[in-house]
Design a protein around this nucleic acid. Structure first.
Length: 492
DNA sequence: CTAATTT
């Protein structure tokens, strides 16, 4: 494949020309990196759907209350969304949920159980694409907190035949916590249907080990156990009509995730060539976008330019600390004393060990918080998350196990105790940054993020993140509590 | 040495 253009490597992301070009014609019709597309496949009708700021006409934009009840969480300014449909299909954005081919039971679930009033923008544009036969694949990117979960949960539920007692819809997620959360949303939305569901995190009561084939119609899981179930013939793929990847770019990253993900897709397509593949995430960098398109070559596509991805409702600040010890002082002397008025806080660290030791130190010195990482037992993780959801705990120290998708509406503050870097130990983890700060400011609430930097590398990383998203990040003095409080009062 | 997921 010729790397003719737009292969913006991380190194020269500061190039302003490149950035402008990308945002202007962000996705100029780059055909999938394949060969021999038939003239039919090449005939990609590029058509803009109703993605302009129509909904907010007549209302003031800064009226957060109105957005609360729409099917997603918060309404985003999504004029920057690029929609590309494949083939001849023409879709009309759904103004109301009734415009969609949904059963009365599902509509009731949306209105009564979920309390939604109307589709969010990502739902309005993608649900018609997903639910209109022939059921085409979809690669969909949308802002954090814009209602992606509702999209794929509705899609799975509406493709299930309640009279068939076998798995018909699968959803694969990167973490146990996301599995639990997605299953919970799914069961609420399915409340008035007879559709059954289970997950890879649901089997504790089974003594840990499943022995009988799954009869539930929707299955949500992490890749390891799903693979295991398929291998042991506990999960039959014959009737699966739809496969959803939550946090798809993460699930397709070149490591263990990708291997299992691709294998599952291939197995499924072998059993049922028409299986519908949905890839959802808030982030698709150029590489993952290409990879996703190579997996789903005929997919409809919805993308957001990365410069438009950073959420303006989340105030972001860099904090230059003299050393790592002073990061802890920021927590003890500034964050914790203001905890009560802050809502809830998530502190992200890089390693399991850091989660453990920081928690131990805070605990020792009387600062009440909890911590979570992959080294904890599943029951402990469940408990810690539940306490945080209940609001029993206000501050949670976490590795990136919770960086994606974790939805707790009371979180107003995210602390990057360690700035996000890739596993090479050097490169900025752009996507991780966006996901982490997106844990705050949910449900139309405001949020803030503090990035604690103590080394030259930390500063370099934050500088590159800032330039990647074209988002200036102001700096705060680490030992000036008044400044912090002023910022918090202003933004929260 | 390092997150996440498994057997």
């Amino acid at each position: 494949m010729q790397a003719s253009h737009e292969m913006v490597p991380a190194a020269n992301l500061a190039d302003a020309d490149t950035q402008k070009k990308m945002s202007d014609e962000n996705d100029e019709d780059q055909p999938p990196p394949g060969f021999g597309e038939s003239s039919d496949a090449v005939k990609e009708v590029t058509q803009q759907l109703e993605t302009t700021v129509k909904v907010s006409e007549g209302e003031t934009v800064d009226e957060p209350d109105l957005s609360l009840k729409s099917g997603g969480l918060r309404e985003q300014p999504e004029a920057e969304i690029t929609t590309k449909t494949e083939g001849d299909s023409i879709y009309t954005a759904a103004q109301k949920f009734e415009d969609l081919p949904l059963s009365p039971e599902l509509l009731k679930g949306l209105y009564v159980e979920m309390g939604f009033k109307q589709p969010s923008k990502i739902q309005a544009s993608t649900l018609p694409m997903i639910l209109t036969p022939p059921y085409k694949d979809l690669i969909a990117q949308a802002h954090n907190g814009s209602g992606k979960t509702t999209c794929f949960v509705l899609s799975m539920l509406s493709r299930v035949d309640p009279s068939v007692p076998f798995p018909q819809a699968l959803c694969i997620c990167p973490t146990r916590e996301l599995v639990v959360q997605n299953l919970s949303v799914l069961r609420r939305m399915a409340k008035f249907t007879t559709i059954t569901s289970t997950s890879t995190a649901t089997e504790l009561e089974d003594g840990g080990m499943r022995r009988t084939p799954i009869k539930e119609q929707v299955v949500v899981g992490t890749h390891g156990k799903l693979k295991n179930w398929v291998t042991k013939r506990l999960l039959a793929l014959e009737n699966v009509a739809i496969l959803v990847f939550d946090e798809a770019d993460e699930m397709l990253k070149a490591d263990a995730f990708a291997d299992d993900s691709v294998r599952l897709i291939n197995q499924l397509r072998k059993k049922n060539p028409k299986v519908q593949l949905l890839l959802f995430s808030a982030t698709f960098n150029d590489e993952m976008k290409r990879f996703a398109m190579s997996i789903a070559r005929q997919a409809n596509q919805v993308f957001v330019a990365k410069e438009k991805l950073s959420l303006d409702v989340i105030a972001q600040y860099n904090v230059r600390c003299p050393d790592r010890t002073s990061k802890t002082r920021v927590l003890k002397e500034i964050i914790f004393p203001n905890c009560d008025r802050l809502g809830q806080t998530i502190i992200f660290v890089r390693t399991r060990e850091a989660a453990r030791t920081l928690h131990a130190e805070m605990d020792r010195d009387g600062y009440k918080c909890t911590s979570i990482s992959g080294e904890k037992a599943p029951e402990d993780r469940d408990r810690v998350v539940q306490e945080f959801r209940d609001g029993t705990t206000k501050v949670l120290i976490s590795t990136d196990v919770l960086s994606r998708g974790f939805d707790v509406s009371q979180v107003t503050l995210v602390i990057n105790y360690d700035v996000p870097i890739e596993r090479d130990g050097r490169s900025p983890a752009y996507e991780t940054y966006l996901h982490r700060i997106g844990r705050s400011g949910r449900f139309g609430r405001k949020g803030a993020a503090f990035n604690l930097m103590s080394t030259a590398q930390d500063m370099e990383v934050m500088a590159r993140i800032s330039s990647y998203f074209n988002k200036p990040i102001a700096e705060l003095k680490w030992d000036d509590e008044d400044q912090f409080i002023e910022v918090l009062n202003k933004t929260l």
